[in-house]
Amino acid sequence: MKANAKIYVAGHRGMVGSAIVRRLKEKGFTNIVYRSSKELDLTRQAAVEAFFAEEKPEYVFLAAAKVGGILANNNYSADFIYRNLMIEANVIEAAYRSGVKKLLFLGSSCIYPKMADQPIVEEALLTGRLEPTNEAYAVAKIAGIELCKFYRRQYGCDFISAMPTNLYGTYDNFDLETSHVLPALIRKFHEAKTEGKSEVVLWGSGKPRREFLYVDDLANACLFLMERYSDELHLNIGTGEDLEIGELARLIKDIVGYEGKIVNDMAKPDGTPRKLLDVSRLHGLGWSHQMSLTDGIKRTYEWYLNSGREE
């Protein structure tokens, strides 16, 4: 991509989109366009087509999505499947019609089969049953990956897909109703510390294993792939390392400085037992993550204290 290429980042106010914008600016790209959800509703086809016809972006990072943890996915499954289907279909179709040179679509590791062999290779997609607690979101994201594949096959579009692992970092969502596990634990431990609570409740057994990637590492990977990868197979983006949720909770507890105890709520679901990505393909291309989990959590907690705390 040339420094003055027109680049559209869909979802620029979210954790992922804002990290991509930061990285683009750091790399010297000067012609970045974006719209807030109030300015452009990506679920409305006519509005999306009008935007692409007017702006004519050359490159698109499709990071806009409705996301959330187990609770949100269970409670708002219709919203998750509808909004994500509409966003990706409208943006990908408009990108094709307006002649976009290249588009990167972001999936999620939670859309792989629940009982996929570990670590999960790219070819595992669509080979088994999905995790029921996020099935609606998974079906929508799988459709986005398939859209990119078939637009490439039929129309020759240079549309690629990436499959990030669990993400965290600055501008994360700390709302306990809709957040993922890592930011939720940061908030729980911080509030328990400041309010003098004797215990923090952890959902489930704490035994499921998860992999976590700092969002700025993902942004680096997205630019790397946009400039160096072109194929229909989606690529995993992760660290290749995981840990138990219970271990994660103890790590966050130490970083926050909470001195109470952790209590497991066994009535709550665990979700998928393990979800570790095989990142050998991405490593083979020359990219690997830079941020350690401990340092990433420290940075995220510092941001939460200074900027991101819920009122």
Rank of each mutant, 00 (worst) to 15 (best):
V67M: 02
G204I: 00
Y8F: 13
L285M: 12
E88N: 06
Y96E: 06
A46M: 05
Y155M: 06
E146G: 05
V67I: 12
I142E: 13
V200N: 01
L218R: 02
L106F: 14
D231M: 09
G204Q: 02
E39V: 14
G196S: 03
L125Y: 13
Y34P: 06
F189C: 00
F159C: 00
N75K: 14
K268S: 14
D41Y: 00
E191L: 04
V100Q: 10
F159N: 02
A72P: 09
G296I: 01
E195R: 11
V139I: 08
I32Q: 01
I186T: 00
A50D: 03
Y301D: 11
R228E: 07
T127P: 07
G169E: 08
D270C: 09
W303H: 09
R23H: 08
L293I: 11
G260Q: 01
L106M: 06
E39P: 15
A72F: 15
Y301V: 07
G11R: 02
G68L: 02
E227M: 06
A184R: 11
L233A: 15
L130R: 02
I145H: 08
I70H: 12
A5I: 00
V60Y: 01
H283K: 10
E26S: 07
N220W: 09
V263F: 10
Y59L: 14
L202S: 10
M15A: 06
I32D: 01
S292M: 05
V201I: 13
F51C: 07
L40K: 05
L126A: 15
L235C: 04
G144L: 08
A72V: 02
T272C: 11
A249V: 13
A136T: 05
A95I: 12
S230P: 10
N264Q: 13
V139A: 04
T272M: 08
D79V: 11
E55R: 14
R13S: 08
E241M: 13
G286I: 00
V121G: 05
Q290K: 03
G196C: 02
V121Q: 11
E49Y: 03
Y82Q: 06
L235K: 01
E54V: 09
F189H: 00
D231Q: 04
I145R: 13
S98H: 08
K197T: 04
G260L: 03
L42Q: 13
G308Y: 12
D265F: 01
T294I: 09
Q45M: 07
T178R: 06
